[in-house]
């Protein structure tokens, strides 16, 4: 495992810690999209089915379990915690799941490495992950005033993908057999979705202000 990959994973993990910290300390999930959290949970469930049939390393297994548990944990807080659930922006978070889930499922059935249940589900998770942030970005645009932790959460999620791209470039040159075109294409799309956000995030940060969206 190279440093880019490790840094990417840590950035991903850190983003999840931030969101749990925000919810736990402020007892609030204001500004967070439940739709995005549900989509990520679906991503993890469909991708990490391989926990049952393939083993890569202890690191991978532990990380997969952490991602699964934390995504269910976040959802539990947003749905059932007495105080937290009252802070959810239900009226603003109107993005429909099927707008993303259906096209990803269709695409996974058409463009995949192998037409088997596990492979199609895995491919579906790759496509869905690429666009799962959209409800969150839409909510961000609507609520405009973003608290620091939510801004940082999205920043680290974006950084995770950017670091994975560096990891892929590194592996492309060092491992001749490593060619994951489908994953790379989805990863590029995913990182691209953050471009706009990054621009405003860095601008706000430079000006020493809270993140403000136009």
């Amino acid at each position: 495992m190279n440093l880019f990959r490790l840094a990417g994973d840590m950035s991903h993990l850190f983003s999840i810690v931030l969101i749990l910290l925000k919810i736990y300390t402020s007892k609030s999930c204001a500004g967070l999209s439940m739709k995005t959290q549900e989509l990520y949970t679906l991503v993890f469930v469909t991708r990490y089915l391989d926990l049952f049939y393939s083993y890569v390393s202890l690191y991978n297994t532990v990380m997969k379990l952490i991602f699964l548990a934390s995504s269910f944990g976040i959802l539990w807080y947003m749905r059932y915690h007495k105080q937290v659930k009252q802070t959810y922006d239900r009226e603003q978070d109107t993005f429909r799941h099927y707008i993303l889930v259906v096209p990803c499922a269709v695409l996974a059935l058409i463009v995949n490495n192998e037409l088997s249940v596990t492979e199609v589900l895995w491919t579906f998770s790759i496509y869905l992950e690429a666009v799962a942030i959209l409800p969150q970005l839409v909510l961000l645009q609507r609520t405009k005033n973003v608290d620091n932790l939510t801004g940082q959460y999205i920043f680290f999620l974006g950084a995770y993908r950017a670091l994975y791209i560096l990891n892929w470039i590194y592996r492309y040159w060092t491992e001749p057999k490593y060619r994951q075109y489908l994953v790379w294409a989805a990863g590029l799309v995913q990182t691209g979705l953050y471009a706009d956000f990054f621009y405003y995030y860095l601008k706000s940060w430079q000006a020493g202000e809270k993140l403000r969206l136009p």
Partner: peptide, 10 residues
């Protein structure tokens, strides 16, 4: 279809 590579990323 491309070659199926071992999935060792998260």
């Amino acid at each position: 279809a491309t070659e199926n590579v071992k999935k060792d990323e998260l």
